[in-house]
């Protein structure tokens, strides 16, 4: 589950609190440019894992490397590479938004000019450009969240770690957060997000890392969310065609075909890239199939989560492992 191309890598990570092991031999590797949803019930070790990844806590044993830097050997270098927003974050309420960001830039050692440029870009991105003169304490919950994220990404970190970032946000603010995370990912940032609310992770996560009782239950890509690797496609015809199944089965990139309505509608795993996908559609149309729908089939987070838990435990235990506030 680990890889040399990983930007975040945990190897046999153990973390102990007095009287309790919070993380038990957790190993994984997160590829650059992905968004990993960190899921698990309360007390699973999500926040502890995030704090270890951000080099805010030193592991008891094992290792964590971020951007190739060991968190125990050089935690300060890891801090340069990471942006972190805690579940319950604080702001300097009596400072203005501009002062908060100037302070964040100075603490990050950005220098005056780089800080000014970063503030300009970040406030535009977060939609708080019109609030620069407002005191942080006077902002709404959603705007405070945006300011906190702005502080976390001001130095353009390679890895952004967000613990329950949408907690307490209204639907509009959640949508804005989702768009922001996708934009950051598209810009090359690697993002790790924890949440109890799977619906909010649904929109942007490419991978799902499930923790339970401090152990890694599963770390896999979510089908249909990654640019490479297996994705699931769905096809529907305007009129039934008995050749659909054999033609699909004859394609080298296609596997695991499920006929939803025989001769009319199917879903299948597809291992090719976007151009291969376009090639398949062209071949089907040239073969005379009346294609009415041909699309990427997103795997529902909830289903994916339950499937992973069930695979680890057996179906009877899957329900008991659901995050408590899952929606």
């Amino acid at each position: 589950m680990t890889g040399t191309g990983s930007v975040v890598e945990a190897t046999d990570l153990c973390f102990d609190y007095p009287g309790q092991r919070a993380l038990d031999r957790v190993s994984f590797g997160i590829a650059p440019g992905t968004i990993t949803a960190l899921i698990g019930p309360n007390g699973a070790g999500k926040t502890t894992l995030m704090r270890c990844l951000a080099a805010l806590e030193a592991p008891f044993s094992g290792a964590v490397a971020v951007a190739g830097i060991d968190t125990r050997r050089d935690p300060r270098a890891v801090h340069r590479a990471v942006g972190y927003l805690a579940d319950e974050f604080g702001l300097y309420d009596t400072l203005t938004v501009r002062q908060c960001l100037l302070h964040a830039g100075a603490m990050r050692g950005l220098g005056r000019e780089r800080t000014a440029a970063a503030i300009g870009t970040t406030v535009q991105r977060l939609g708080i450009a019109d609030r620069l003169a407002t005191r942080a304490g006077e902002l709404s919950r959603g705007l405070r969240q945006r300011l906190a994220i702005a502080q976390a990404i001001l130095h353009d970190p390679r890895v952004l770690i967000l613990d329950e970032p949408a907690s307490g946000l209204d639907p509009e603010a959640r949508r804005a957060l989702s768009n922001l995370l996708k934009a950051l990912r598209d810009g090359g940032m690697t993002i790790i997000v924890s949440s109890h609310i799977l619906a909010e992770l649904e929109d942007y996560s490419t991978h799902m890392l499930i923790l339970r009782d401090g152990r890694l239950l599963s770390f896999q890509p979510i089908a249909g969310r990654t640019a490479s690797g297996p994705r699931r496609l769905a096809i529907a015809l305007a009129a039934p065609d008995a050749r659909l199944m054999p033609v699909l089965a004859g394609q080298s990139e296609v596997a695991d075909i499920v006929m939803v309505r025989p001769g009319l509608e199917a879903s299948f795993a597809f291992v090719g890239d976007a151009s291969a996908q376009a090639g398949l559609l062209r071949a089907l149309v040239l073969n005379g199939f009346p294609v009415a729908r041909f699309e990427l089939q997103h795997e529902a987070m909830q289903d994916a989560y339950l499937a992973r838990v069930a695979a680890a435990d057996g179906p009877s235990l899957a329900r008991s492992a659901e995050p408590e506030r899952m929606t």
Binding site: F89, R108, A152
Partner: peptide, 12 residues
């Protein structure tokens, strides 16, 4: 005030 972690995360 929960601002200490953000200070610890800086390379200062």
């Amino acid at each position: 005030a929960r601002t200490w972690d953000s200070q610890r995360l800086t390379p200062i």
